[in-house]
Amino acid sequence: MFKNLITESTAKSPWLFHINSGSCNGCDIELVAVLTPRYDAERFGFKLAGSPRHADIVVVSGPLTQQSLPRTLRAISQVPEPRCIVTIGSCPQSGNVFKGSYSVMAPLSKYVHVDVAVAGCTPKPEAIMDGLVQATEILKEKRKAWLEAKKNGLKDGPKAETEQEVPAAEDVPASGEEVQQ
């Protein structure tokens, strides 16, 4: 009898964990602007959580620099299921203007399945809010999928989680040549 109550409240109280992997802080202040009185995401239950263990939605901003990539992926892996990953701005999607630089490891979708991508080089707070509300819908499906996975024995969610092998920061080749698009 609790099942649908829990699924409903999964969508109603999504907690965000924000990871800044080298962003110019444009998207960071926009994300925080979403929580200010004018846009007030707390109406939908959004709250910034201090540690990944408390998070449901992981919000990533920044072009995933070489140093921050392994740390971002480790923090994302520490978020309990069901979780979904939202990227803000163009940087995590494609590396934006920094594409081709030796130290930029974007896009994030190479390493982790990205659920919602909010485009815009600093997307408007309304756009971020749309993206987050979209993410809460996906969170519900994810929870159902996760329960099925657990029911029929699959210990952890579908393996497709990480398509590519994670190049830990230490062994990334010095010149970023072949990593480039």
Partner: peptide, 12 residues
């Protein structure tokens, strides 16, 4: 139009 949310591959 600022509403640019990409869910699938081709949205953006």
């Amino acid at each position: 139009d600022y509403h640019m949310i990409g869910l699938k591959e081709g949205d953006l």
